[in-house]
Amino acid sequence: MQYVILIMMVIFAIAAIQTEVLRRTIIYAGVFSLLSSFAYLLYKAPDVAIAEAVIGCTLATVIYLVAMTKYKVFRVYYKHTSTNKENIHDILESITKYTDYMSLQLDTISTKKDLHEILEDSHYDVIIIQNDTSIDVYGETSNYHFDSMIDFLNLTCRYKIDFHFVTPKKLEDNYE
């Protein structure tokens, strides 16, 4: 019985590192934690088993899932000043593929505002400005989706895209 649980712990630990989807990793880690709680119970440590079952299996899993849903929305501002209508949807399709791949939720906003006005608004991930000749993509350096999105777009998109890094706004000091 102990060996069954220990071998299953090894299997779930390997599965937790080897999966690509982040949510499955959280669930596998929760199952690993539950199995380790059983293992503690079999080694006659019920105190540690209770603590592990409550902390590792319930609280940590729920906190990770809530943090996942907090970081799930991916907001894109899209400004289009081009005259020919052919290559409008290409970059948006690429970004849709990226968000499906990363299991994010895409939130596209078409805007006519100026770049500085968009930069004033703090709630954005990526700003795309499409002209006749070039596609400009702006993103903050602190945003951790932006680097992987650059790699993904370089691999998949057919057009040449100019990427610009924007230094993030200075955080307002509202501590006491």
Binding site: D47, V54, I55, T58, L59
Partner: peptide
């Protein structure tokens, strides 16, 4: 078996 830490964690799960 049990104690303050474990029971406190269970009470915190009530808030969650």
């Amino acid at each position: 078996p049990g104690g303050g830490f474990q029971g406190g964690a269970i009470l915190a799960s009530v808030f969650i």
